[in-house]
């Protein structure tokens, strides 16, 4: 069994440092700000001056998931990686006329900077992986976390993060076409074989890419495989899809905004809900058409 222990998110909702995050969710508007804690109380001086927003929110939420023993694996999913530093270095290349270039943005532009910063901060020498498959990056990271537990490891940090930069908003209508505001999100949690107080577990995760299959049929087969009668589902969280199940359905994009890590925040919302009231929740992510991620979480 794959149990969820500590979990932490920073987003445009009140999510950081709260036991339950599902009760006070607000429908986001383009003006909803990213709600960050005082980093100065949490991060060391070098991190404060050098790290971009995605690195700060990732490191901060990851540190909330620490327990007494070192992680046996750190798994990070990010769809677009460190966009702010990538853009900064692109601007540097274009605007610098002298022979030398400032290296910091380049160093921190690679996707694995998130996991690298976490391992560096914790002096953790374990498995450290970065998955980037657009909006499926979180589901793939969760699958990797489960695989690590199957391989005999126990204390795993799994998370996903993506950041908004103004450039993304310029792509709307031409490329992205969304009615939801662009956001920044970091969600990290601790996955273990041992039961946690909240007693919420990941039942299964499915990743299907470049797919022409009917989402509703895939969902039914996924539930069947997990011996889960659709009528027993408490709730379905989805990325603005037509879901044919008669269960209560919630479009999570209203609360997460448009972000490749949105399903990670939806996962946190679901975990929060089950931590209060037992049940089974399905998270359906098809933010990028043709890609489908399914996560089934449960508390008996």
């Amino acid at each position: 069994m794959y149990y969820i222990h500590a979990i932490s998110s920073i987003s445009h909702q009140q999510t950081f440092d709260l036991e339950f995050i599902h009760n006070d969710l607000q429908k986001l508007t383009p003006e909803s700000p990213l709600l960050v804690p005082e980093f100065i109380d949490i991060l060391p001086p070098t991190a404060l001056r050098r790290l971009s927003a995605i690195l700060k929110i990732s490191l901060t939420t990851a540190l909330k998931c620490l327990n007494e023993s070192a992680f046996d694996g750190i798994v990070v999913g990010t769809g677009l990686g460190c966009l702010q530093d990538t853009e900064k270095f692109l601007v540097t290349i274009n605007n610098t006329t002298s022979d030398v270039l400032s290296p910091t943005a380049f160093i921190q532009s690679t996707h694995n900077t998130i996991g690298g910063q976490i391992s560096l901060f914790l002096k953790n020498h374990a498995y450290n992986m970065t998955h980037t498959q657009n909006a499926l990056s979180f589901e793939i990271s969760l699958l990797d976390g489960i695989t690590l537990l199957n391989e005999g490891k126990n204390n795993i940090l799994v998370g996903a993060a993506d950041e908004k930069i103004p450039f993304l908003e310029l792509l709307n209508e031409d490329l992205i076409k969304t009615d939801y505001p662009f956001t920044s999100i970091a969600t990290f949690f601790n996955l273990k074989k041992e039961k946690s107080d909240r007693n919420v577990l990941v039942k299964d995760v499915l990743v299907l890419a470049n797919s022409k299959k009917d989402i509703n049929e895939v969902i039914l087969r996924f539930l069947e495989k997990n011996q889960c009668d659709p009528t027993n589902l408490t709730k379905v969280y989805h990325s603005d899809l037509e879901i044919s199940l008669s269960t209560e359905k919630v479009n999570y994009l209203d609360f997460t905004g448009y972000n490749y890590a949105a399903s990670a925040l939806a996962f946190h919302i679901g975990v929060s809900e089950l931590s209060e009231i037992p049940g089974t929740i399905l998270i359906v992510n098809s933010l990028v058409k043709k890609d489908l991620g399914l996560i089934l979480i449960e508390r008996c």
Partner: peptide, 15 residues
């Protein structure tokens, strides 16, 4: 608390 990345930034500063 400066490190070798900052040393590269010093090179940029001087040039």
């Amino acid at each position: 608390g400066l490190d070798s990345i900052d040393a590269l930034e010093f090179i940029v500063l001087l040039e």
